[in-house]
């Protein structure tokens, strides 16, 4: 990896992260998209950490990636449980029906 510098990895991660963000913001369909977009963002974060770890020669980055993996898994599980319950209660997972915080 002669010509790949930290900046390349950072740019890639930045674009990926923003894509995930856009997925959250442009979401008009159903709540599951939010979870998938969050997974994309977490993926970009992992990539970021690992690339920093490689270029700075510090293992803390990779260790933290392990943590993030764990937490992401837990969070995905709980999120899906909540989504299922929500579906059971409301009958739909449309974004436009989740407006109890309105006003």
């Amino acid at each position: 990896m002669e010509t790949i510098t930290l900046n390349h990895c950072l740019v890639l991660n930045g674009i990926l992260f923003t894509l995930g963000l856009l997925g959250v913001l442009l979401n008009r369909r159903h709540l599951l998209m939010v979870l998938i977009a969050v997974e994309v963002m977490l993926l970009s974060v992992n990539l970021n950490l690992v690339s920093f770890s490689y270029f700075l020669k510090d293992y803390a980055g990779q260790v933290f990636t392990v943590f993030i993996l764990t937490v992401a898994a837990a969070e995905a599980a709980i999120g899906l449980a909540i989504l299922t319950l929500y579906y059971k209660n409301h009958g739909t997972i449309n974004v436009s029906s989740a407006t109890t915080l309105k006003g």
């Binding site: 979401n27 989740a98 309105k102």
Partner: peptide, 8 residues
Amino acid sequence: KTATGQVN
């Protein structure tokens, strides 16, 4: 109007 209640 901005307080729609949608988390987005």
